[in-house]
Design a binder for these strands. Structure first.
Lengths: 138, 138
DNA sequence: ATAATTGCAAAAGCTTTGCATGGCC
DNA sequence: GGCCATGCAAAGCTTTTGCAATTAT
């Protein structure tokens, strides 16, 4: 649970002006936990903020990504989705629906880190490693 | 290198009618090795097949994915891309450009398989695990 | 005060769809 | 011959853009 004041602090920390729209959008991303797209965010916000504009939502999302308050989630259907959880984690992708859940596993992370520490890739500098696990929820 | 006759066999093997368009599109996917999108495929094909229609390309790509002759690649910019390499491999994503390269590592695969064999996930049945390695080519 | 952000609407991608025509089996 | 695939153009959906009006600092 992330409070509104924490959200405001996050925006300030990035020197971003604290507007009601930005607060609402970032708040929506924290509360909608299934990696929402713009559509989901707009729908969620409309209750408390009926006059928000679609263009604004996209602009704010871009700027939040650029300022590393959100990450984009990779998908294969051409719809952008966003992730407010910034700490290292992996994703479970349902192969039948568009559900995407977080998968956190520190043991796995340490195995991967050890493995890649030793590994030297000639032509690539690794910044982040994420598992993309596809399958089926049961 | 995949020959035209192999491509024809692959189509036949899936009971798909062998049309020049399908052959050309699948061939393009094999030759364009940077995980092409529809745009790249159309451009590549236009030389030998000037009158191919955009709608057809999308329909063929859908049907090739549905018949498991192609896979879609997950991206975060809303453009669909395709992968003709069906055997297990991972992807290196450039964080500055849209370059995506294959990363094959059997040792890593066996580590992952061992790890997940022991692991029991209550609510998810794993079908495939792929690393999404982001960073920078040098 | 002023520089940045919002709203609105238009436009720009990329992808899908419908239907008549044509081509593979 | 029958049915499926193609071409073409229109429509659909998501996202981007431009500019005037508004707002945060």
């Amino acid at each position: 649970m992330v409070s509104k004041s924490e959200i405001i602090e996050k925006l300030k920390g990035k020197q971003l002006k604290v507007t009601p729209q930005r607060v609402a959008i970032l708040e929506a991303c924290y509360q909608l936990n299934n990696h929402p797209g713009a559509e989901n965010i707009i729908h969620f916000i409309k209750d408390h903020h009926p006059h928000i504009s679609v263009g604004t939502v996209y602009k704010v999302l871009d700027s939040l990504v650029e300022n590393k308050l959100l990450k984009r989630v990779k998908t294969e259907n051409g719809i952008m989705r966003y992730d407010a959880v910034l700490s290292s984690h992996h994703h479970l992708y349902c192969e039948e629906t568009d559900r995407i859940e977080d998968y956190v596993d520190v043991e796995l992370d340490s195995i991967l880190n050890n493995y890649f520490r030793g590994k030297k890739m000639k032509n690539f500098k690794i910044k982040d490693i994420k598992l993309q696990i596809t399958g089926k929820f049961k």
